[in-house]
């Protein structure tokens, strides 16, 4: 639910945003300033356990994660908790959901929390991903009205990753299989969005640490697909995705004899650019695959509507959107 004007969003940056995803944190706060979004960081938050800890032992993992929910619920006047990192978002919402579904689990978790003088009532906090805030609270209209430096002619592949849209506990995403929120957001910035069939496929996650060949193959697929669709940049919303595609791009090129050079940028960095914020404040320059060359492509003027290549005389028309509204 959208907090009222006075009510700030609770903010859970997560470990990545303090280190490897510093650019995400910087760009988020820079953009939030311009848009007047108030993010109030939860005091004394701890790690969400990333994707591994849950696999080891559920109860300590849930207790660890729920501590953040308990802190958020008790500290701020906010009823929402925004996580920019997809893994954090999934862990927080999974714990909230499971505690509500399994009361026995909730009481065990609360027993553990009681040791620290805390408790958490499932459902008392709405857990949201940062993208959801931009798409559903700020809205495309408001964002496009504030764009001063549109990203004309920049071809963006919108990459959601596998963690935020499935399972979609709150029913936020239009289609869990093929979400389009980020697509529309990028269009609102003036960018040219490419169809990116692998938009919800896995980036390899922590496989880089476990089996590099597997991870590199997963990363290669994504880069190759973005390249085939002629993308200048890939827009991400997850520190893990960014890290894998960015840092390991060179490894992929080495292992497969390819020559990809696709900068992997946080969607907040692109919003920041379009809002006219200086690149330095948005954390540009921290990426391994430099964005300079791609950003130089951004055109000054709206490109003339592309002359549709006249289909050959024989070609059959593509399916058109019908006027019938979906029920």
């Amino acid at each position: 639910m959208k907090p009222s004007n006075e009510e700030p969003y609770g903010y859970y940056p997560g470990c990545s945003l303090e280190k490897n995803a510093l650019a995400y944190n910087e760009s988020t706060s820079a953009v939030a300033n311009v848009l007047g979004l108030k993010f109030e960081e939860v005091a004394d938050w701890n790690c969400c356990g990333a994707s591994e800890y849950l696999a080891l032992d559920i109860l300590p993992a849930y207790a660890l994660i729920s501590r953040n929910l308990a802190l958020a619920a008790s500290s701020s006047g906010s009823h929402s908790l925004v996580a920019p990192c997809s893994a954090c978002f999934l862990n927080l919402s999974k714990v909230d959901h499971q505690m509500a579904e399994v009361p026995a689990l909730a009481s065990q978790v609360n027993e553990a929390l009681a040791a620290g003088g805390l408790s958490y009532q499932p459902g008392s906090i709405t857990i949201r991903h940062l993208l959801d805030v931009f798409v559903n609270d700020v809205g495309f209209d408001r964002i496009s009205s504030l764009v001063t430096h549109p990203l004309y002619e920049l071809r963006v592949a919108p990459y959601y990753g596998c963690l935020i849209s499935r399972p979609d506990y709150e029913g936020v995403y239009d289609s869990p299989e093929y979400p389009t929120g980020l697509d529309h957001l990028m269009t609102a910035l003036g960018a040219e969005v490419v169809d990116f069939p692998l938009k919800t496929h896995c980036c390899g996650g922590h496989m880089t640490q476990i089996s590099e060949p597997v991870a590199l193959e997963l990363i290669r697929r994504l880069l190759q697909n973005a390249h085939e669709y002629d993308a200048d940049v890939i827009a991400t919303l997850c520190p893990m995705c960014q890290l894998n595609l960015d840092v390991y791009q060179e490894h992929v090129n080495h292992a497969f004899g390819t020559n990809y050079h696709i900068p992997i940028l946080y969607f907040t960095q692109l919003i920041g650019l379009a809002l006219g914020i200086r690149a330095k404040e948005l954390g540009f320059g921290r990426e391994f695959v430099s964005a300079k060359r791609a950003l130089a492509k951004i055109g000054k003027a709206r490109p003339a509507p592309k002359k549709k290549r006249k289909p050959s005389k024989e070609a059959l028309p593509m399916p058109q959107a019908t006027e019938v509204e979906y029920r």
Partner: peptide, 24 residues
């Protein structure tokens, strides 16, 4: 009415040229 296959975007109807509906 025929089910509009665009509602299942992962099947590519309307995006991928050579995906056809039954009536097509």
């Amino acid at each position: 009415d025929l089910f509009d296959a665009r509602r299942i975007p992962q099947y590519g109807y309307g995006r991928l040229a050579n995906v056809f509906s039954s009536l097509e």
